[in-house]
Design a protein around this nucleic acid. Structure first.
Length: 377
DNA sequence: GCATCCCGCCAGTCG
DNA sequence: CGACTGGCGGGATGC
């Protein structure tokens, strides 16, 4: 009941997997990042851990991430993507994914599994697990099919569809049918489509695919963009080369605690406040970045700058080394803010901007500890 | 109304 | 066993 409307109405878009993915990437796609803790990610992004799994799974299927241990992933970056895609393509061709025409039942046999990308030392460790992949017939149990239904595998198969077929555009329902093989109950297809929506959102946010509309059927479909999205490279898989291959992901970190229905009484008393105080509010200055291209028809109604609540939250207990790139990030942000001062014609906006800069500065000094840029309170 | 797809329950897995 | 993973589908939101 507070007042001041502008009430944080629940907005589905603010919670989409795609946006979350963008935020995830803008948070970790920077030099210095090596490992990613799921808890840390969930905390920083202000979402449930469950959601992180969704993103991490598809990112892993493309090679951007690699699981290291429980709760821990390793950041590989986009440099490896071309290789992974190449492997997927070969794999898909071998399996004859989407063998068009009839028998489009290729449904990639499960067995084996993910990428297996790189893998310098994969020699000794082939124990069991091979045997299980053989019982695939009338087996009412088929416990192992949990894996073949994984988001990661589905993502790869979805991608293979684009890489190994001449279908320029694919609508999710067709994709689901092809991947499932026909003769499946509609409920199963529906479920698969639901998963494909999740995947498509993530892939879209990475600019691997793009949502369009089939010229004839008018049905929404997805078009493969692949690596075109990024700087036309393909030949420069060389390591490093600093920021040349950094994509621009939406950097509006939005992670409001609003739930879908049961409206959590947002900070009404004080309890909610304690949590809030933990997260210094420093809005991420949505600097230029995205404004250059933004394909037509995409969201982002050219409304220009948009600030979203950014909640850095407290620093991780351990991982002391991480504060290194953290502070770098901060200084980056700061210098950016001071050098790239947008020209607002509007007085109010100018003030708002000023406010953000200040907030960010104080946050910086608080987190970085040293180098008092401004002051605190 | 139907297309999207978030949310979180709860069953597998892993350490 | 408890913690971590993540399939799954109900049902809310968007258009």
């Amino acid at each position: 009941m507070a007042s001041k409307d502008s009430r944080s109405v629940y907005s589905r878009k603010q919670k989409s997997l795609g946006l979350l993915c963008s935020n995830f990437l803008s948070l970790y796609d920077r030099e210095g990042v090596e490992t990613i803790g799921l808890d840390d990610a969930a905390m920083r992004l202000g979402v449930e851990r469950r959601r992180i799994y969704d993103i991490v799974n598809v990112l892993e299927s493309v090679g951007v991430l690699a699981r290291r241990a429980k709760n821990r992933y390793m950041w590989k970056g986009f440099a490896v993507v071309p290789n992974v895609l190449q492997e997927l393509k070969e794999e898909g061709l071998k399996e004859r994914i989407g063998a068009s025409d009839r028998s489009l039942s290729l449904q990639v046999s499960d067995d084996d599994d993910d990428v297996h990308h790189s893998n310098p030392n994969a020699s000794n460790q082939n124990d069991k697990s091979e045997a299980t992949s053989v019982l695939r017939l009338a087996g009412p149990a088929r416990t192992d099919n949990r894996k073949e239904k994984s988001l990661g595998l589905l993502t790869q198969n979805f991608i293979k569809l684009f890489l190994c077929t001449n279908m320029e555009m694919i609508c999710l329902e067709d994709a689901a049918k092809i991947l499932l093989g026909d003769g499946r109950p509609p409920s199963m297809t529906k479920n698969k489509v639901r998963r494909l929506y999740d995947i498509a959102n993530v892939l879209s946010s990475m600019k691997f695919i793009e949502k369009t509309q089939h010229p004839e059927t008018r049905k929404p479909a997805f078009r493969w963009l692949g690596l075109e999205g990024k700087s036309a490279d393909m030949s420069e898989i060389n390591l490093d080369c600093n920021q040349s291959k950094k994509r621009v992901f939406g950097n509006e970190l939005t992670n409001t605690p609003i739930k879908r229905c049961k409206l959590v009484p947002l900070m009404d008393g004080d309890s909610a406040e304690t949590k809030l105080q933990a997260q210094i509010k420093c809005e991420s200055l949505d600097c230029e970045a995205n404004r250059s291209n933004l394909d037509p028809g995409s969201r982002t109604s050219a409304k220009g700058y948009q600030f979203g609540p950014f909640a850095p939250v407290s620093v991780p207990k351990d991982e002391a080394h991480e504060s290194g790139h953290r502070s770098k990030l901060l200084s980056d942000c700061e210098s950016l803010a001071s050098t790239y001062r947008p020209q607002y014609h509007n007085q109010a906006l100018r003030e708002l901007f000023h406010h953000y800069v200040e907030a960010c500065s104080s946050w910086y000094s608080e987190v970085a500890g040293k180098n008092p840029v401004e002051v605190q309170s």
